[in-house]
Amino acid sequence: MGQRKQQTLSRKNWMAFTGLFLCSFLVIHLLGNLQLFLPDEKAHQQFNAYSHLLSGNILIKIISYVLYASIVAHVVYAVIITVTNKRAGGIKYHYDRRGAVSKWYSRNMGLLGTVIFIFLVIHLRDFWYIYKFGQLPLDAQGNKDLYTLVVAVYSELWYVVIYVICMIALCYHLLHGFFSAARTLGVYHPRYAQWIRVFGWAYSIGICAGFAAIPVYVHFLK
């Protein structure tokens, strides 16, 4: 087995495992952020307290490292897979209409992923970095005032627009990614394959609509 040059299936397995782990993270992240929809005063206190709780928990810290590793592994494997696939194609077709038989987002996961990656850099710089390493004033209870930062950032309309666009990219990425991961891991039973497809649709739209609604809500109603 030592001289194996490629391992297409094991690479795809890593993509699926890391992708699904990131999917589960999105659920927790969204559930936590739904607190921003509470009435102003309550949201302010509760959101800051929640952020403080997360940053102080050792278990969360361990999971966060797994999360960073998953993002890095997902990106690295994506690059390796894309490069290998390009090489496997050989000479390009002069006239190429192959796209007519598959969905555009299933063929452009790399592009969608790049948009998400750029979004992640912006998003982490604006919130995660400032919360961890920057100077944030404290609220009445002595917690770092992340809430005020969130409201300030989302008061910019162009920022809200970028967020919504990135969430649409994420939605398409998940739409293909979730069901594709299940296929890669081997869900071949037609009934469950169909369930996963439907669940994947509901999951992708639910998650992305939820995330996109937060900046819109904060911008227009806070």
Partner: peptide, 17 residues
């Protein structure tokens, strides 16, 4: 699967084309 990989075919990304 090993032979398929050795021949230089790419990864399946489930586009279903």
């Amino acid at each position: 699967v090993d032979q398929m990989d050795k021949e230089g075919f790419g990864h399946c990304s489930n586009t279903e084309a």
